[in-house]
Design a protein around this nucleic acid. Structure first.
Ligand code: ZN
Ligand code: ZN
Ligand code: ZN
Ligand code: ZN
Lengths: 135, 135
DNA sequence: CCCGGGCATGAGAACCATTCTCACACGTCC
DNA sequence: GGACGTGTGAGAATGGTTCTCATGCCCGGG
């Protein structure tokens, strides 16, 4: 019972542009933000298309998404292996941190309480050295 | 350097009803959900007031809030000490889990990368034993 | 190389959770 | 009891995200 064949992703100028932009940015950016930057540099891409491209990238595991406190979604080009983020709440700079002991801890605690199909969500926020200095 | 005096919270039927409802529910509920339940049981409370009451409770540290994957805010009556949640993604049942080693880990990793004012956000999702059984 | 089926695109409308507005109600304090 | 000022609520406004649908264009087959 193998997974159904993936609908075959088509390569277009717009999707290429979105992925390329994400590649050269190093922090989490909102869809609206990306849309504005694409428009500025002349690569006109519809807002709806930006959302669709990002959704596809998330589904393919090429991009990570996280929700800000106000509920906006922010996207970032990320490595495909499981990891978490250390995010500067001022400039958006992000560091990927992997393999923390919480991986084992989460699985153990969940098992102790009889929970199955365990997932977890962990993000660390702070102010990076550069931002702390210039304040 | 003490904090400014809090504006003194007024005790009203509506705020009492919201807090009472949260007290007898054991999982995270959305504002819309709480509003609908209050209306059903006759305690008519305006939607805007539900939002305001929940916001006040969060500010007072009596209620925890978390964002669902679709961006809706969900609220739950919680203990005031720092802790995290083990949430059943099927029935919403929640277990509070405290003092994991991740507390120290988060602080250490952040420090190693020069980040200050560190906060973190951790939730564990799974399917509880009861829900797994009846499937 | 040329077609044609069908996914992709985009402008704008629709959606929907949340917040704002503002006139009125009512808790609090004297 | 009365004044003051915060709380309330119905509806409008906001704003991020998704949907609609007519048109565009990627891509495999011929
Ligand atoms: Zn920074
Ligand atoms: Zn992890
Ligand atoms: Zn359950
Ligand atoms: Zn913690």
């Amino acid at each position: 019972m193998s997974a159904a064949e993936v609908p075959a992703r088509r390569q277009t100028r717009q999707r290429t542009a979105v992925l390329a932009l994400l590649d050269e940015l190093d922090g989490f950016r909102t869809a609206q933000d990306l849309h504005a930057q694409l428009r500025e540099r002349g690569d006109g891409v519809g807002l709806a298309t930006v959302y669709r491209a990002l959704q596809a990238l998330v589904d393919d595991g090429l991009v990570d998404v996280l929700r800000s406190e106000v509920g906006e979604a922010a996207y970032r080009r990320c490595s495909p292996v499981h990891h978490h983020h250390l995010v500067c709440r001022s400039c958006g700079r992000t560091v990927e941190v992997a393999d923390p002991p919480v991986e084992r801890w989460a699985a153990r605690v969940a098992a102790e309480h009889g929970f199955a199909d365990v997932q977890h969500q962990l993000e660390v926020f702070g102010t990076c050295a550069a931002c702390a200095a210039q304040r």
